[in-house]
Amino acid sequence: MPKINGNEIRPGNTLEHENGLWVAVKVDHVKPGKGGAFAQVEMKNLRDGRKLNERFRSADKVERVRLEQKDQQFLYENDGMLVFMDTETYEQVELPADLLGDRRPFLQDGMTVVIEYHDVEALNVTVPQKVKCKVVETEPVVKGQTAANSFKPAILDNGVKVMVPPFVGQDEDIIVNTESMEYSERA
């Protein structure tokens, strides 16, 4: 595995640090008036979700880990375990549902997701950035209410609450951004 300097760490990089796998969430390059510059890195443990703030000077070397990404299709849920199928080899793998976190409701039958592996261990599941959902409950459309920033609450078919523009009515399909958990556009 390649070693990189502490000042080369970027958000999204996976690092091996203190006998664990960490993903860099936020990186700030600090140049104090006195002393050398350093990178203040906020990291999240890929196995247990712990967070850690660490300082890396440019002379510090860290192991950068490359994770293998595979497209896999979601099949079904069984006792808190999600079953995915590799689209090339047709092998099935079971992963805990909490691996998805708050993105879990957006997982739909037959959806293709990206699973990141370190050797044979699955560490992360990424759902598509935009997902089509149906509005099951919202306030009725009020004619003439066209204020630029007026949004109203809506409940989707997966139970998630989002804010939608006033023109979106009940039983309409919308596209939701799964990263920001916000309304994106009409479907």
Results as ranks from 00 to 15, higher is better:
Arg103Gln: 11
Leu67Gln: 05
Asp71Ile: 04
Thr14Arg: 09
Asp60Val: 00
Tyr76Leu: 11
Gln92Thr: 13
Val142Cys: 00
Lys31Ala: 10
Ile174Ala: 05
Gln145Thr: 04
Thr89Leu: 04
Val23Cys: 01
Glu8Trp: 10
Glu139Val: 05
Leu15Ser: 02
Pro96Ser: 12
Ser150Ala: 12
Trp22Ser: 01
Asn5Ile: 00
Gly20Ile: 00
Gly101Arg: 14
Leu156His: 01
Gly35Val: 09
Val135Ala: 04
Gly110Gln: 07
Glu16Cys: 06
Lys70Phe: 05
Lys44Arg: 15
Val120Glu: 15
Gln145Cys: 03
Thr87Ala: 03
Gln170Ile: 15
Cys133Thr: 09
Leu67Val: 09
Val176Asn: 07
Lys143Ser: 13
Ala24Arg: 08
Glu182Leu: 12
Arg66Val: 15
Val114Asp: 08
Leu156Pro: 07
Lys143Leu: 14
Val176Arg: 07
Ile174Gln: 05
Pro2Cys: 01
Arg50Gln: 14
Gln170Met: 15
Met85Trp: 00
Pro128Glu: 03
Val114Arg: 11
Lys134Val: 15
Val120Trp: 09
Asn78Gly: 00
Leu21Glu: 10
Lys51Trp: 05
Val27Phe: 06
Asn53Cys: 08
Glu94Gln: 12
Thr89Val: 03
Leu46Glu: 02
Leu46Thr: 06
Leu21Cys: 10
Ile115Ser: 07
Phe106Pro: 03
Glu18Lys: 15
Gly6Arg: 04
Met43Asn: 01
Glu42Gly: 01
Gln145His: 05
Tyr183Leu: 11
Pro140Lys: 12
Thr112Gln: 10
Thr89Tyr: 02
Pro11Asp: 08
Lys134Ser: 15
Asn124Glu: 14
Ser58Thr: 14
Met43Val: 08
Leu107Tyr: 06
Ile155Cys: 01
Val25Leu: 14
Lys61Pro: 02
Ser58Val: 11
Val114Glu: 09
Phe56Trp: 06
Val136Pro: 02
Arg55Ile: 03
Asp98Val: 08
Val62Phe: 10
Glu137Ala: 03
Lys61Gln: 13
Val125Tyr: 08
Val164Ser: 02
Arg103Thr: 13
Glu18Phe: 13
Val136Asn: 03
Val164Trp: 04
Val114Cys: 04
Lys152Ser: 00
Pro105Ile: 11
Ile4Met: 08
Lys61Trp: 01
Arg64Trp: 02
Val127Tyr: 02
Arg50Asn: 13
Ala59Gln: 12
Glu91Ile: 01
Thr138Arg: 00
Met85Gly: 04
Lys31Asp: 09
Glu16Val: 01
Glu121Val: 14
His29Pro: 00
Arg57Leu: 11
Val25Glu: 14
Thr126Trp: 08
Ile175Thr: 15
Gly159Glu: 02
Arg64Thr: 10
Arg186Asp: 12
Pro11Thr: 13
Asn45Ser: 12
Lys34Asp: 06
Asp71Gln: 10
